[in-house]
Amino acid sequence: MSASAILSFSTTFALVALSLGLLLTVARIVRGPTLPDRVLGLDMLVAIAIGFIAVIAIRSGFNLYIDIAIALSLVGFLATVAFARFILARGLSPESAGADSRAAAVPTRGKALAPARRQNKGGRR
């Protein structure tokens, strides 16, 4: 097996795996359920895109792509920081209150009481 055959196989494998990863991440971004989840998904999307660019750099032989990957990681980091500040400034979003019982923000009467009690018990330990 020659070197280029091995490389061709492994880059194809990496591209397929990364594409699947991108799909899964997009699924998380679509499902949400809250804004921080989506921001985390976008962060992950950037990370996978960086890996993708690195694989393309190997496949095409253009080493310039590595610089692009580094620049993209800078931009992704700044975007996540900006989003974190935005989440902090905005506080709890209205959609998260009822969208998902796990992330239920305001324990209203009835159903949401049980999980709230369980958490209190844990906190006292």
């Binding site: 921001v39 985390l40 996540t80 500040r85 989440i87």
Partner: peptide
């Protein structure tokens, strides 16, 4: 930063 912001914003 994201974990801290989410926790302070009140995400459970």
């Amino acid at each position: 930063l994201l974990a801290k912001a989410a926790h302070q914003a009140g995400y459970k």
